[in-house]
Design a protein around this nucleic acid. Structure first.
Lengths: 271, 271
DNA sequence: CGAGCGTTTGATCGGTGTCAAGGATCGTGG
DNA sequence: CCACGATCCTTGACACCGATCAAACGCTCG
């Protein structure tokens, strides 16, 4: 099924950022069955309402989730990059409530949902990082809700630029102060719930204020701290440094208290 | 630890809406260790930045997630009711990126995070319903992002009223066309990203249009279909009827293809 | 009866949307 | 090498939705 060995290395790398894995865990992740799709700009991976039988791992380039509301207005719900998992567990819901589409040329691995459930059962440490990836995604989604709900246009846009910069830095595809913005102004409008015209004017304002630089490929952040301030941006919710700070989650503690934990025999996630 | 046997029955009931459970699974859910908290209006269960060591199950009343952005503006991120789990897996992130607070008087069970991880390992069928609860929560979060991002005030508010009606009906605490709205107009403003003044005017408009009735305790939806139309509301994303429609998820299929699935011996979610 | 909270109203302001057009850039094919 | 179309970016004039400010009303509960 796989076209290339180690194709899932970016995904493994991101999962290892969430917790230490054994060699067996790493092998299991890399061995996940998958097909690789090379995507032209705007290609659809899922459409709203599709039966959900698989999930996505981004290998290169960018993709987004989106919804269409009302009379065709479009809202981007998330942006994903190298190493990110998309809808890892959403097959549990049976069908998709949103579309997934590439932003620019990209490569993605499509993994059957059952393989993820197998992995969670057969390699719980790896499974735990899958769950972390899922709740992290939810954390970002909450921040986006707050972003479009309670911030004005300038703050909103600055916040998105900061988030993308930090995430791209963490994913190894740029630096927070210099990265290739994967969004057109129209897409940035759909991210922020604004119109393209207003996005354009706000970007000009940010340039005029010296927060970002004039040329746009690549996006250069001239003054990171000021942009973060302007965007009301605190990066905690992205947890890009969770591993390195040595923080341990309550789950670690819980399990440390039960070193003899054993699984029920013959258990499965089957309903 | 538990004050009352069967206190978690509403939670079990919701989980059973996601998949069929065995008697052992049901027992395991009801036996989750927990403490019961009786909450006055506005009591905090978590505060933003708290160490995340436990999760919440709502037993009665309502609670919300929220964030404070910028200079004190508040955004409600979700509303939870009887049977809902809140942040079931968020302890995996180590700390909380949002606050959780009661809306009106309420009762909630506080469950140690480790107990959830134990349950997922020891009773995978029950664990599967926990995961479904988690991805369902994410699905609702995405809809809220789209709601505040791309709908105008009237549509936004109508949408929230429809969602709450359907969910309260599913939770057995009201009917979609007649329920006790757990939100003040100020809270409804924080849900929709509007000001209290504008919320008030929009509600008056909905009343004048005959979509909802004049008295506000309880909220009476005079014309459900028109309110759903006005709110651009399609309830698919809530999956309140997933069980009854007999839909099966890809995970079922995946596991049916591997009836001899066995877990790795001695596995755990410990990192 | 008064305090506190939630709701309602009016007047005005301003941020963002809308409409319309033009300019810049880039890949492609003649 | 240039012409061309497509896509993206930019600009201007104007309209409007929803915010802001300020005040009053109406519950409910001690």
């Amino acid at each position: 099924m796989s076209e290339a060995p180690l194709a899932l290395a970016p995904f493994l790398s991101k999962l290892e950022g969430h917790a230490r894995l054994t060699a067996a865990d790493r092998q299991a992740v890399l061995a996940l069955p998958h097909t690789i799709r090379r995507l032209a700009p705007g290609d659809h991976l899922f459409r709203e309402g599709d039966r959900a039988t698989s999930c996505i791992v981004m290998l290169s380039g960018f993709a987004c989730r989106h919804k269409i509301v009302g009379e065709g207005a479009r809202q981007l719900l998330s942006v994903h990059m190298k190493g990110d998992g998309i809808d890892l567990l959403d097959a549990l819901l049976g069908s998709t409530d949103h579309g997934v589409q590439s932003l620019g040329p990209a490569e993605a691995a499509v993994i059957p949902a059952a393989a993820i459930s197998d992995l969670i059962l057969s390699h719980p440490a790896a499974g735990r990082t899958i769950l972390i990836e899922t709740v992290l995604d939810a954390s970002i989604q909450r921040e986006w809700t707050a972003n479009v709900g309670r911030r004005d246009a300038r703050t909103r846009i600055a916040h998105v630029l900061c988030e993308l910069g930090v995430r791209m830095e963490a994913a190894g595809v740029g630096r927070r102060d210099r990265f290739d913005l994967p969004l057109t102004q129209e897409q940035l409008a759909d991210v922020t719930g604004l119109t393209i015209v207003h996005v354009n004017r706000v970007l000009q304002g940010l340039r005029a204020a010296g927060l970002i630089s004039r040329g746009k490929r690549p996006m250069k952040v001239a003054d990171w701290q000021s942009l973060a301030d302007a965007g009301d941006f605190r990066e905690d919710y992205l947890r890009t440094s969770a591993r390195s700070t040595g923080k341990r989650s309550a789950w670690d503690l819980g399990f440390e208290a039960r070193p003899d934990q054993r699984l029920a025999q013959g258990a499965s996630l089957r309903s």
